[in-house]
Each structure stands twice: as structure tokens, then as C-alpha cells.
């Protein structure tokens, strides 16, 4: 180690042996600490830089529309009118339905994997679920366009649109498959691995003694899961769901290919819609001036929504944990 010699030479006088050793260790520690600090601070700088760039880029649009940008639903680049409301609602709505679809499947799979599955089945199922996360989103999009969309039209949308259920406010519209439903189903599949894998790990982390205590009191397996395991894991499961929600909000390619890309918002699942990420992907290349600035503000908007969702998740987890501690104390 050449550096060792260098360091020793660098120490001026001849201090006591132990102190010399101390100094050397201190320098190593300092360098180490310094490297870690730089890494951590660079994350902060990247986020600060992103916010700065997004804000500077959307200056023109902010000056032109102010808060109206978020409440106006008219998106008309030809006339330089930009309102982001349909995109904001479309993003939240498609992600909401994705969670509604993915949460039960994801959670039940996680419970099965951690509590009930025999070992020979648990490994391959876990692996398959994680594999879902590794598929590129454009592949999901193509699959959605050529497989899922015709399937939904034929076996789900068609029968419903022609049946009595069409009277419900969420089913109507033209059942052509380029709509919120297709987007939500694709998103549900995409967030499924996140919800499943994180929930499973959290359930697994619950100490064995907790379950054993419940069984010792005579609880059945169902009672143990419902009454002990799930409440214990509640905060973590909420975290998993929010992670999935955040993922769904920002998903671009797959959604763009099936949602129909119409800048209108309807609660009807069979109507075309649009999301924040999709409109940026679709329109940024040909945009300039105010138009470009408005699209960057859409990016800022998406960033803020993600921030709010994450903050909400943190709060929710905090209060759930508090709640659990309180009731746990009483019991």
C-alpha cells in the first residue's frame, strides 16, 4: 500500500505511536465520510436542479395562465390555449382504478406467498411476480394494443355496453377499447409486482413470535391473518400501495398506446382520456415557445402531484403507526 507510506510521511513530527495510528484512521474515516456526503448531497442537487429547470422552463406559461392552467380544461395548441385539468384528472383517475384492480390481487398474492404457500410453489410464483416488473413498458403497450384491447372490447366492454349495466355512470361511451379501462388494466398489471413484492417482504418481516402467540390463544389461520398479521403490517402495506400509485402516475408509454389520447375527462371508463405523462411524450417534439413552456409546466405539475402523493403516504404511514402503538398499548 503506497498510500500508507505517504500518510505516515505526512505526519510532521514523531507523535506517540497510538496517536499516529489514530490520525491515519481519522483520515480514512474523513475521506469515507466525505465521499458519502457528496453522494447524498448530489441527490439533493439533482432534485433541486429538476425543480429549478422545470420552473424556469414553464415561466412563460405560468405568466400567461397563472392558476387557470390547473383549472381550465381547454387544451388547444393551435390557439395557444393551455389548460391541464383533463390531464390531471385523467392521470389520477386511471391510477386510481389501477389501484382498485391491483390492490386485492397484489395483497392476496402477498398473503398467500408469506403465510400459506408451500415452498415449492412460493419460489416460482415470487419469481414470476418480480418478472412482471422487468418487462419494458413499451412491451406492455404493444401487448395492450394488440391483445388486451381487442379482448376487453369483445368479452367485457361489448357485452356491458349492450346490457343493462350501461346505465351506470362508469359504463357508457363507445366501447372501442381505447379508453380509461384499457389504461387502468395495463397500469394495474404494471404496479402489481411492486405491491405484491413489498407487501410480501413486510409480511415476512413480522416476528414469528407474534403469529405463534395468536395460534397459542387458539386463533385459526384466518383469524391470525385478519386480526394479527395484517394490522401489524398495515403501515408497510400502505407504503407498498403508495409506491404502486406513484409508479402508475408517471407511467407513459403503455398508457399512451391504449388510452386514446383525447384531452377530455369523463368518469366513464369506456371514454378516451389523456394523462400528464402521455401529453408530454406525444407533443414535446413539435412544440416551441409558449406551447413548449406549457408542456414543461405539465411536467412540473406531474412532479408536484408525485410529491404530494409521497408526502401523503408518509403522513398516512406515520398516523397508522401511531394508531397501532396506541391500540397496542391499550390491549
Amino acid at each position: 500500500m503506497p498510500s500508507e507510506a505517504a500518510v505516515i510521511e505526512a505526519v510532521p513530527a514523531a507523535p506517540p505511536k497510538s496517536r499516529r495510528w489514530e490520525t491515519r484512521r481519522n483520515i480514512g474515516d474523513k475521506v469515507y465520510k466525505w465521499i458519502l456526503t457528496v453522494a447524498a448531497v448530489s441527490v439533493l442537487l439533482i432534485i433541486a436542479g429538476t425543480i429549478y429547470e422545470l420552473t424556469m422552463g414553464s415561466r412563460q406559461s405560468i405568466a400567461a395562465f397563472g392558476l387557470r392552467f390547473f383549472s381550465d380544461s381547454n387544451w388547444d395548441p393551435g390557439r395557444h390555449l393551455f389548460g391541464a385539468l383533463p390531464f390531471i384528472l385523467g392521470t389520477l383517475y386511471s391510477s386510481f382504478w389501477a389501484l382498485v384492480l391491483a390492490l386485492p390481487i397484489g395483497l392476496f398474492t402477498a398473503i398467500f406467498l408469506s403465510e400459506m404457500a408451500p415452498r415449492w410453489l412460493e419460489r416460482p410464483v415470487s419469481f414470476m411476480v418480480e418478472l412482471l416488473a422487468a418487462i419494458p413498458s413499451v412491451v406492455y403497450g404493444l401487448w395492450g394494443l394488440f391483445v388486451l384491447q381487442p379482448f376487453l372490447v369483445k368479452y367485457f366492454e361489448g357485452p356491458i355496453a349492450n346490457g343493462p349495466l350501461a346505465a351506470l355512470p362508469i359504463f357508457g361511451g363507445t366501447a372501442n377499447g381505447y379508453d380509461m379501462l384499457s389504461a387502468s388494466v395495463i397500469l394495474a398489471i404494471m404496479v402489481l409486482p411492486y405491491i405484491t413484492a413489498v407487501s410480501r417482504d413486510i409480511l415476512r418481516a413480522i416476528p414469528r413470535t407474534v403469529r405463534e402467540a395468536s395460534y397459542a390463544l387458539g386463533a385459526t389461520s384466518w383469524e391470525t391473518i385478519k386480526g394479527v398479521v395484517l394490522p401489524y403490517a398495515r403501515a408497510g402495506i400502505i407504503g407498498a400501495v403508495m409506491l404502486g400509485f406513484g409508479r402508475a402516475l408517471g407511467e407513459t408509454m403503455a398508457v399512451t398506446m391504449v388510452i386514446g389520447n383525447a384531452p377530455i375527462f369523463k368518469t366513464d371508463l369506456f371514454s378516451s382520456g389523456y394523462t400528464l405523462a402521455s401529453v408530454i411524450a406525444n407533443e414535446l417534439a413539435e412544440a416551441s415557445g409558449l406551447y413548449r413552456s406549457a408542456l414543461i409546466e405539465i411536467g412540473l405539475c406531474l412532479f408536484l402531484i408525485t410529491l404530494v402523493v409521497n408526502a401523503a403516504a408518509k403522513l398516512l404511514i406515520y398516523y397508522t403507526a401511531q394508531d397501532l402503538n396506541a391500540t397496542g398499548g391499550k390491549k
Binding site: N74, W75, D76, P77, G78, R79, N176, Y178, T256, M257, G260, N261, A262, P263, S272, N282, E283, E286, A287
Partner: peptide, 17 residues
Amino acid sequence: KVGSATTVSWPTGLGGK
């Protein structure tokens, strides 16, 4: 009602990428 541009506000139909 609509005008001309690289992207317009379409009165009807859906968009393909």
C-alpha cells in the same frame, strides 16, 4: 372552430401515436 397546427383540439375521435 378548430384551426390548423401541429396539434389541434379535435372535436371527435381518438389519437394514435
